[in-house]
Each structure stands twice: as structure tokens, then as C-alpha cells.
Simulated assay, not measured.
Amino acid sequence: MSTTESNSYYDNLENMTVTELIGNMNKEDKTVPLAVEKALPQIEALIEQIVPRMQAGGRLFYIGAGTSGRLGILDASECPPTYGVPFDMVIGIIAGGDKAIRKAVENAEDDRNQAWPDIQEFGFNQNDTVIGIAASGTTPYVIGGLTKARGEGLLTGCITCNSGTPVAQAAEYPVEAVVGPEFVTGSTRMKSGTAQKLVLNMISTSVMIKLGKVKGNKMVDMQLSNEKLVQRGTRMIMEATGIDADHAQQLLLTHGSVRAAVAHYERQK
């Protein structure tokens, strides 16, 4: 039996108090970063392969089903506003299509042949990367997509929470964050989902930093999509230039990004 399907360390959950439930869940959650830490060499190896490909015009695809697919979509959808990159630079694809984001699509994850056509809807080139996300490591949709992508010469990686799985075997650069049994047996939206989110954070953030989308520790290309971000950008410009808030905000709104505003100011000095 796979680790993710193994019996929980806890039983008779229905008899626990709320204090006991959340305390035990928290106890289990504390083990997740340690599991991810053991996978850091695998994560590093994958990132080191992704960066030069994206510098050469490649894109990053995440494919998955259920929770895994939703986490990929979440990570991909946050890259454009955070780093100012095109919406199709990092792409999340879920088995069953966008309707599966909110409601499970029956048997979609069992279709081994559908992931590649889903990827092809966006076109592909030899610098693209496909990362399959599957807590179990056995999802046919993900296995099929990775197998086909690898056969077409794309870089392939995966994030799974079992060791030695078919998904890992299908990927050139597997990441295996083995978090152990879930608090509710088999509920991989819990510890496994948390581990996948942590790994996705590491991958996309590291890639964007290496692509020059962060200066110092600031998101200098973030989209100004709400007042909070305008205020954040204003503060960043003030810190970088020493000018007052009104001038900084004027520059930001005129030039559209912290990077462009600071560059304009420096040219005008």
C-alpha cells in the first residue's frame, strides 16, 4: 500500500474534541516542511533545468487532477500579478478542464491520453517544461501527459508524495516529498497538498527570481491591480529613490511598474 493511502496514525476521530482534532492536525502538519527538506536536492535539480529553458523562451506547464491540479492552477495564476509575466508563461491544467476547478469531473483523471491534447491547446516548443503533480504518483492523466511530453523532447518533472511511483518514473526530474499517512486516511488534500504547495512555491519563486523578476527582495514588476499593490509599489519606489510618497505614486502610475518608475527617475537625475 502506498504511503498516502496508509492508515492514519489516529483513530476514532469522531470521538475527539475540537481541541484534540486541531491539535493533532497541527502536529502532523509540522512534519511536512521536514519531508520537503529531504527533497530539496531534487527540487534544486529541477529548477536548474527549468531556468535556462525559460530564459530561451520556454514556458512552464503544471498538469494534475483534483487537489493537485487545483494547486498547479493556483500557482500558475499568481505568477502574472506577482511578477508581471504574460498569463501564458506559467500554465496550470487540470484533468476535466476548468469546470473541474470547482466540481470533480468523473473519471477525468483516469484518461491517460487527454493531458497531451490539453497541453497542445497552448502550443508547445522544445524549451517548455511539464511538471506533473500527483500525490499518489499513479494518476493516469499525469503519467500519460509526462510520457508524451518527454517523448516530444520537453523537460519533465513531477511532484509526488510517494516514493518510486509511475509518475516519478515518467519524469526526468522527479520530486518526492513523502509526508506519511494523512490525518484522515487517504485525504491527500491535507499534508500532501501542503507539501505540494510548498514545492510549487519554491519552483515558481526561484524561477522568477532567476529570470530577473525580483530586485533585492522586491517584486518590481508586479501588476498594479488594486490599491494595496499601488501603495506597496509606492513604498518600494520611495525606498529605492528617497523621494516623497506623492512623487513616488505619480511615477508609479505613469510608468506602470516599480522597475520602470525607478529607471525613469534614475535617468532624470
Rank of each mutant, 00 (worst) to 15 (best):
D128F: 02
V199G: 05
A168W: 01
S206L: 14
V85D: 02
R259T: 12
V90E: 00
A263F: 00
L252F: 07
G72K: 09
P181R: 05
R232A: 09
L60F: 11
T160G: 06
L229T: 10
I94F: 11
T31V: 13
I94T: 08
G72Q: 09
V18D: 07
C79I: 09
V105L: 05
N201C: 15
N26I: 13
I50N: 07
M1A: 11
I43Q: 04
F124K: 07
N113H: 12
T82R: 05
R267E: 11
N7E: 14
A95K: 03
R59E: 04
E78L: 11
G23C: 05
A245G: 10
G64W: 08
Q126P: 03
Y10D: 02
C158A: 13
L252K: 02
N217A: 14
A134G: 04
L40M: 14
P81H: 08
K99E: 15
S6F: 01
T241Q: 02
L74D: 08
G180V: 08
W116H: 10
Q49G: 15
K191A: 09
A104L: 10
L155N: 06
M16Q: 14
L21H: 03
S206W: 02
N7D: 14
V178W: 01
I91M: 09
I159T: 01
T147S: 14
P117C: 10
G186L: 04
P174Q: 02
S136L: 03
T129L: 05
N12P: 03
L146F: 03
L200H: 04
V18G: 01
E152Y: 01
Y62V: 12
L40A: 10
Q268D: 10
Y9N: 12
R189T: 10
A177N: 01
D98T: 15
T139S: 13
L251G: 07
L229H: 04
P86A: 03
I94G: 05
N226C: 11
I93Y: 07
S163Y: 00
P174W: 03
L155I: 12
Q196N: 09
G164F: 00
R59F: 05
Q114N: 14
D110F: 07
R232F: 04
S68I: 09
K148L: 00
L198D: 08
T188V: 15
L252M: 07
V90C: 14
R267N: 13
K103Q: 15
S257L: 07
E78R: 08
D11N: 08
H264L: 00
P33E: 10
M236H: 06
